[in-house]
Every structure is written in C-alpha cells, then in structure tokens.
Design a protein around this nucleic acid. Structure first.
Length: 376
RNA sequence: GUGGAUGUAGUUCAGCUGGUUAGAGCACCAGAUUGUGGUUCUGGGUGUCGUGGGUUCGAAUCCCAUCAUCCACC
C-alpha cells in the first residue's frame, strides 16, 4: 500500500491524497461505510459502488470470526471473494466489540477472553491469533488489537489500559511481520493510538506507533463518552507526532460535522455506523441539517427526501412516503435511509476534497458545519 | 320477541367485596444513539370509565333506565 499527498489546504493541515492498494485506489479524505459481517446492511454492492460511490468498506473481525467463522472464510478465499466485493476492505480487530458487545470479557496481558453475544461460547483474542484471523479474512488494511478505553476512565485506569494496548501492539507487529498474506495481495497493518483524554498518554501512544513505521495510523478511543471538544483536542495532540506522509484514520467518527472538523485537523479516513444505524432508526442527514423522518410533521410533506441529494432515492421518494414506510415497519425504509445517508456522507467528503484542492476548505467548512449540526 | 354476556386509552385488557391525581402491554408522540446485535435506551397518558338518572361523605365499582355489540333460544 502506498499513500501520496496530492493537495494541501491553505488555512489548515487538511490534505488530499491517494491510497493505492492491490484492490484499487482510495481518494482521501474518505469515509468508509461499515459492513460488519461482510455486508453494508440493506445495500447492494452495485449501489455501494455506482450510487453511493464507496471506495472502501469496513469488515469486523469480531463478527466474522464468530460467523461464518474462519474455516468458511478460508475456503471462500477471503472476504473479498466470499462477499464479491472487489474494492478495498479494512477490518477492525474486534477490540471495540469486545468492549461494547461481549459478555464477561476479561483482559489479561495475554489477550482478551469474552463470551459470544450469539451463543455465549467462550473465546480468546490474543494479538497473535487476532492478526492471523485478519490474515484469513484478508482485508487490505488490518487493525491492531487494542483496548478501547472508555471516555470517562480515570487516570489510573487509562495508564493501565494504554500499557496493555502498547504491549499488544508490539506483539501484533511482530506477528504481522512474521506472517504472509494468504491470497496473493498485500495487507497493511495500522497501529491504534489510545490514551483516553490524557494528552501525555496520547503523545506516548503516538510516539510508539510512529516508531513502528507502518503504512498508516489510527486514532482510537474517541467518541466513546468524552466531549466533542476533547475529541478534537486529542487529535491535535497527536497530529505533530504521527508521520505526516502516512494516512491517519479516526476510528468510529462521526457526524458530518465531526468528520469535517477531523479533516481540518489532518485526518484522512473515517468510519461510522451513524449513517446506517441511525438511518435505520429514521435519522436523515442533509446539507440543511438532520431530520427525524419519523416525526409526525413529515406525514404530509410530499417534497423529495433530499432535494439536493445525489442518490437515486433522493429523487424518487418523498418525505411523506419514507415516513410512512418507517411507521409501517417496512424494510425498504431502512434501505432508503441507509442509501441516502451513505451517499450523503460520501458527497460531503467528496466536496471536502474539492475545497482542499481549491485551498478554501476551512472557510467552506466553517460555513456548512453549523447547518449540518442543526435539527430540522 | 325471550334469556344471557360484555361495554374502561388507538388496541388488547387489569382494576377484588365502593376510598387519594383510573393502570399495564402493544400502538402512538418525542428525545438519545459515533471502530453496527436489523438494535437498544429515555421520556410522554393521548381517558365524558357506552349514555342518562339514582344511592352514598365518596361510584369505573352498587341500583334503575337506556343504547350498542355478541351468544343462545323462539
């Protein structure tokens, strides 16, 4: 994998670039739709490519490991072939899922033991077997196994947590260096910078990550309970430490406004469940703001879902109809909302790239952020 | 026509022998959701207790009438 910076903003550290992988190029900044089990919920690959214009999607080690399991993925020849997605894939290690989903999780220096949310069975992720697992899934970019420290963790906990993440990181890198990709194309390994909301811990984590000389770097453990301001501050803290010529990935973020603020602080990659999960719950993102399409006020609004939208659903369906589908519990509702939101996210980030190239990103960002954050 | 049963929130119902501001599930209305469990969580009662009288300090609850629906029988 290579990364080439192609443009820089005039008034911020925002930049445009191209990540080249064996499954094709990715223009950055980029938003990566989340496809937990090898599927972006409710969306055909065809729409993901042609309508939404996704350039890379996420898969999840935790989920794929539990279902369909490594044996099937290996037989299938990896996730690309299994799911018939031929563009880049990034897999999250599952550190976050163990933190957010699994029952009875136990962390030790060796790894983390947890119970499956599906059948209660007991499993252990170690840095070594987690890298092996992501080799089997076969993503283009694989992530370090980490502990996602809660945003409100106290200093003592955060220190202990970071120590664990750092020791796991070293072992992940070692395992990655000692193993080969299984399916004939290259894989890159991204460390994850933790450190909770403590600047010195973040710096320490970023320094260790930078010293490993990888293809890209992730910032994790944000948007997990801390304030938005604190999140931006932590990005700024690690910014000068991470290698400037490598992509930075802010994990799990966020709203369109969060993403633009992240770009202004040098972030190149984002992923978030919000456009899809919140979409399934009736939240629609637009340039005018966020709307809850379930609200009664839309019941007789026969205007288009999004007048300025780029997706085919925006021009085909009305707000009143979409609300009706939600209230009636139709699965088409979730599909339309997801399709629209993802297309919108990709459009926002595409427009951001344009403004970086023109050099007026900050000015533009400051103008649109307020609107993006309003509720209508 | 006769006999019986039932009428309480949008809906299905709970409210014992009379006792503060009539409750529950679902639905509905609103809010939350940030490295996805097709979720989950939080808040809101939206009611002339079929109607009209009566008994009582006090009635969804007891009595009378009436209306509606259902069942059985002629």
């Amino acid at each position: 994998m290579t990364f080439k910076i192609t443009a820089k903003d005039n008034d911020s550290v925002a930049r445009c670039g191209i990540i080249q992988t064996d499954h094709g190029a990715i223009e950055t900044p980029i938003f990566m739709p989340v496809g937990t089990v090898g599927s972006v919920k409710g969306i055909y690959h065809k729409d993901l490519k042609d309508d939404i214009k996704a350039q890379i999607i996420l898969g999840n080690t935790y989920h794929l490991y539990l279902r369909p399991g490594l044996e099937i993925l290996k037989q299938a020849g990896g996730l690309h072939k299994f799911s018939s997605w031929d563009k880049p894939i990034l897999t999250d290690s599952g550190g976050y899922q163990v933190f957010s989903l699994a029952e009875n999780r136990k962390l030790s220096t060796d790894g983390c033991t947890f119970r499956s949310h599906i059948d209660g069975s007991k499993h252990t992720f170690t840095p070594e077997n987690n890298v092996d697992t992501q080799r089997i899934i076969g993503a283009d970019i694989i992530m370090a196994l980490d502990e996602c420290c809660p945003g409100d963790a106290d200093r003592k906990y955060a220190e202990k947590s970071l120590k664990l993440t750092q020791s796991w990181l070293e072992r992940c890198v070692k395992q990655f260096n000692h193993t080969e990709p299984l399916y004939g194309y290259n894989q890159s390994f991204f460390p994850i910078v933790q450190g909770c909301i403590y600047p010195d811990l973040r710096r320490e984590a970023a320094e260790q990550a930078a010293s490993l000389n990888r293809d890209g770097y992730a910032i994790g453990g944000l948007s997990v309970g801390e304030s938005t301001e604190m999140m931006y501050e932590m990005i700024e803290v690690v910014h000068p430490i991470l290698p400037i010529d490598k992509p930075r990935y802010l994990m799990g973020v966020g709203t369109p406004a969060n993403i633009l603020e992240g770009i202004a602080r040098g972030i190149d990659m984002f992923d978030c469940v919000m456009p899809t999960r919140n979409g399934r719950n009736g939240m629609i993102f637009t340039w005018e703001g966020m709307i809850n399409i379930r609200n009664k006020k839309w019941s007789d609004d026969f205007s288009l879902v999004d007048q300025n939208g780029t997706s085919f659903v925006d021009k085909q369906y009305t707000k009143a109809y979409l609300r009706h589908l939600f209230i009636a519990g139709e699965m088409l509702a979730a599909q339309i909302a997801s399709e629209h939101n993802l297309a919108f996210y990709l459009e926002v980030i595409r427009t951001a790239r344009e403004h970086i190239m023109m050099g007026d990103f900050v000015k533009w960002k400051n103008k649109v952020v307020k609107k993006l954050e309003t509720k209508i």
